[in-house]
Amino acid sequence: MNRTQSLVSAFGAGIVALSTLSGVAQTAPAPAPAAAAPAAVAPQAIPAKIALIAFEQAVVATNEGQRSVLEVQKKYEPKKAQIDTQSGEVESLKKQLQAAPATMTDEDRQSRLRTIDTKEKQLNRDAEDATNAYNTDLQEALSKVAQKVSVTMRDYCQKNGYTLLLDVGGQQSNVLWANQGTDVSQAVVQAYNTTSGVAAPAPSAPSATATPRPRATTPAARPAAK
């Protein structure tokens, strides 16, 4: 299984060109004394107000994020059914071989083993290809949602006076403990649902024969620093 990669932000730098004037008239009067430079203003500390967010989980929790996941899952239902059929066929051949009489010739047994091996390898290739394609489509769909959620996230923090926002959704988070009141994940989800106007998807009844679906990591698209 291939892993999804994080998005990389690019920063640009500007160059300011300076120009000088030359040529001073010989009869020009002496310049007036320069005004005294204003006294430097000492920087003032701003009270810190820190917020936490599980960004990737918040993206999936939005109504639009859930809808995107369901759309991708629906797209791959035919492929999932095909793989389930292939898997059932391989398991059936294995059971038939196990139940074969002891009088089966070695040649017949080896032939069946080769057939099972061929079909099992094909099943593994098809399942891996389908999982990779599923994860790619899911990441692309959620990446578009993440870009819009990041704008809502930034606006929410600015309006509520937060000076620092930390993402605690990843496995590498350095936050060991925090007051639950500092977690703004649900508040950002609600704010985005309100602005997006996307209704919550209708709950679907679980299938009795459903199998676990491939998992994809949500791309962590975040706003550029200002």
Rank of each mutant, 00 (worst) to 15 (best):
T218Q: 00
K75H: 09
P38S: 15
A42E: 07
V184S: 05
R3S: 13
D129V: 06
R67Q: 15
A191M: 08
D155G: 03
V90H: 01
E91H: 00
T103H: 05
A210H: 02
G197C: 01
T211Y: 03
A224G: 07
E107Y: 00
P206Q: 09
W177D: 12
A39I: 06
I83C: 08
R3D: 13
A30I: 08
E128W: 03
N179I: 03
D183G: 06
V189C: 10
V41R: 13
A39Q: 11
Q26K: 12
A17C: 09
I50P: 09
A225I: 07
A221T: 07
A17I: 10
A61R: 05
N179F: 02
A40G: 06
A220P: 02
K75Y: 07
T136Y: 03
N2Q: 04
P206K: 07
S196E: 11
A58E: 05
T195W: 06
E77W: 05
L18Q: 14
A39K: 13
A130I: 00
P47H: 08
T152M: 09
Q180R: 11
K79M: 08
L7N: 12
T118M: 00
S204F: 02
R109L: 00
T217H: 12
N174G: 06
V168T: 11
N132M: 10
T152Q: 12
T211S: 10
F11H: 14
T85P: 01
R213C: 04
A37T: 04
L7P: 15
P201L: 11
D84I: 07
R213D: 10
D117P: 01
V168H: 02
A130P: 00
D183R: 08
Y134F: 13
P43D: 13
I53R: 12
P38G: 14
A102M: 02
I53M: 14
T105Q: 01
R213V: 11
E64M: 13
T105I: 00
S143G: 15
Q186V: 12
A34W: 01
D117W: 02
A51N: 10
M1H: 12
K148M: 01
P33L: 07
A42C: 02
Q57H: 15
V151M: 08
A225Q: 10
M104F: 03
Q5N: 13
R112P: 03
K148Y: 02
R154G: 06
Q172V: 12
A199T: 10
Y192P: 09
D84M: 09
A13V: 09
Q122K: 13
D117T: 05
I116N: 04
K94A: 10
G12I: 11
N179P: 00
W177A: 14
L166M: 04
A58G: 15
K144M: 04
S185C: 09
C157A: 15
K144N: 06
N174F: 05
V69F: 12
V175G: 00
Q26N: 09
A130W: 01
G23D: 12
P203N: 02
Q96S: 06
T152W: 09
N135K: 15
A127D: 14
D106L: 02
M1I: 12
D84L: 10
V72W: 11
L113I: 05
K121R: 14
A42Y: 01
N124L: 11
T211C: 04
Q66W: 12
T118S: 01
Q172H: 13
N179L: 03
A48R: 14
Q82A: 12
T195N: 05
T182E: 05
V184I: 15
Q57G: 15
T209S: 14
L142Y: 04
A36G: 01
V60R: 15
V41P: 06
D137N: 13
P29R: 14
L176C: 03
